[in-house]
Design a protein around this nucleic acid. Structure first.
Lengths: 105, 105
DNA sequence: TATATCTATCGTAATATTGCGATTAATTAT
DNA sequence: ATAATTAATCGCAATATTACGATAGATATA
């Protein structure tokens, strides 16, 4: 046990849950906000921006990458992280649709 | 360690993360969807609806209650769970605002 | 080549989550 | 009063998450 029984739910329910999970930590919310305001695809100074260690930030970036919300491109010695607008839009749509249907009653 | 350092982030970032966390499991997504479609404030037959045990469902309901997305009122021997439209609206607004700001670049 | 910088990953520890069965507490029905 | 139903909670086990320091691998610079 301890593992979510994903196979018992629909693909959409799992996708929504997966996207929500990516946003379920304030550090990851902060990372996305930071990437958004620094219009240039900001790289590893996310670490300087956040009050967390380099390895911890790296782990959070990995989570965001996993669901596709960001992607990282090698830029010399550092890595340039960018928001993936398509997945942001997907998340907006899925969550928007969800709330619309929920709010009906 | 193992605990999120909430104090290092803003109230809004933590609230967004908290609401997202509530949606970060397909069972809780399914519960909210079920409560929404069954227009009468449905009670404990959520358990029959979900492929999980009674105690597990109860735990998920507790999570949803914790952030305020639902509330339960005693109705005789059973408990009537309802969606809290105000918190649904709050979540919609917070997430909507978030995605609008993120999607700008 | 040697050195510095950057980031991923490993190893470890603490805590949280998910899930279940069993029990408990409360209410309703007999 | 007793039995049945409902839902929360307890106890337990397995796995996941969060966080850090240390290390490793890659690329740039001296």
């Amino acid at each position: 046990m301890g593992t979510t029984k994903k196979e018992l739910f629909t693909g959409e329910q799992n996708r929504l849950a997966g996207l929500a999970k990516a946003l379920a930590h304030p550090a990851r919310v902060a990372i996305l906000q930071y990437l958004a305001v620094s219009n240039k695809c900001v790289c590893g100074d996310i670490v300087d921006e956040l009050p967390l260690s380099q390895s911890t930030v790296s782990q959070h970036l990995k989570e965001l990458k996993k669901v596709g919300l960001i992607h990282g491109d090698i830029e010399g010695t550092s890595i340039c992280y960018c928001i993936n607008p398509k997945v942001i839009e997907e998340a907006r749509l899925i969550l928007g649709k969800f709330f619309t249907k929920i709010n009906c009653c």
